[in-house]
């Protein structure tokens, strides 16, 4: 299988490394190698039809700041359409305003008969139905396990292992940064600003944390889950959203008096599509601390199914992309491709 990696930041580099590490698995299980035949970042591009060395790509990015030697001159869409490869791994950063450049990359790949694996929430949270239809029309796969919850396998679990279940509702913690901040406020009695600063110093929160603390990230993930698992036709803008910016120590303390903690919870059911802070009883699975992500599904046959995992990180996200890559290889083998 020939792959091209779009975006060569933390996630792109992680999946390049993992593809290098798992060649034996690809050969043993599928009788073929997975070759990276192209990669590009915001300014440069590199390609080689015979395959690129993942270690060398990551080394060059680390030393020069760019993955390639040739400048990107606006021809990325044409490259994706015309270049000979099988699967695009789209890892450019999420843009929740217009989904670009991820949307153009994904549509170009699907439209030219290539599978797509993406960790990019923007296109999925804004134009999910359009992308799904394009994949179906072109008889290729669009997979996005890495877009929600990193290494927590909620999408493939729901759509494949729980395929026979009726899933009534979902709720969970989809943003590790908020969970870390709320947990620190409770454990140490810290004001919000101080817990946020601590998260920033530890590299858990971005310098501009609004995407996390205002619930934007969680709302994007919730919209993706609503579309992927519940068959809804919604966008990020349909999610009712309240962040944690104005949660005070007093609020945390009052909840604590009732033996409860405050957590930013995403919830999907027949009446609700919402991200908001909620009071959760101590000892409840959703009272989980740290930066972990957790999702609870309520199903008709299996009852409550809970999945927990690391929601972000270079190797964690690469692990989710790898699971999608293996699913495409399995599907191709089943179809005798």
């Amino acid at each position: 299988m020939k792959v091209v990696i779009a975006g060569f930041g933390t996630v792109g580099q992680g999946i390049a490394e993992v593809i290098g590490m798992r060649q034996e698995l690809f050969s043993k299980s599928f009788g073929q190698q997975v070759k990276i035949v192209g990669a590009f970042d915001s300014s440069t591009i590199v390609k080689n039809a015979r395959g690129l060395d993942p270690v060398e790509l990551v080394r060059r990015k680390a030393s020069t700041g760019t993955v390639g030697t040739r400048k990107v001159d606006g021809g990325v869409k044409e490259l994706i359409e015309e270049y000979d490869f099988d699967t695009l791994i789209e890892t450019t950063p999420t843009n929740i305003l217009d989904a670009e450049p991820g949307y153009t990359h994904i549509m170009a790949a699907l439209g030219s008969g290539k599978n797509v694996i993406t960790s990019n929430k923007g296109p999925l949270a804004l134009r999910f139905r359009e992308l799904s239809k394009a994949a179906a029309r072109n008889k290729v796969q669009l997979r996005y396990e890495a877009s929600v919850g990193g290494a927590m396998p909620v999408i493939n679990l729901s759509r494949e292992l729980l395929r026979g279940e009726e899933i009534f509702s979902l709720r969970g913690i989809l943003n590790g940064t908020c969970n870390f901040i709320l947990n620190r406020m409770k454990d140490e009695g810290l004001p919000f600003e101080q817990a946020l600063r601590e998260a920033q110093e530890m590299g858990i929160a971005e310098r501009d944390p609004s995407y996390d603390i205002d619930g934007v990230d969680s709302a994007c993930k919730l919209a993706i889950l609503a579309n992927a698992i519940f068959g809804k036709d919604v966008t990020y803008n349909d999610v009712i959203r309240t962040g944690i910016r104005n949660i005070t120590e007093d609020a945390i303390a009052l909840a604590g008096e009732q033996n409860k903690v405050i957590r930013l919870i995403g919830e999907i059911n027949k009446d609700r599509l919402e991200v908001s802070p909620r009071m959760v009883p101590n000892g409840h699975p959703l009272a989980i601390g740290g930066t972990l992500n957790i999702v609870q599904l309520l199903t008709d046959l299996a009852g409550e199914v809970t999945v927990v995992g690391r929601g972000a990180g270079r190797m964690e996200t690469a692990s989710a992309i790898l699971s999608d890559l293996l699913a495409i290889l399995s599907e191709d083998r089943a179809k005798g491709r």
Partner: peptide, 9 residues
């Protein structure tokens, strides 16, 4: 009144 509302689970 522009309050933050936190419901129970």
């Amino acid at each position: 009144h522009d309050y933050i509302l936190i419901r129970g689970l």
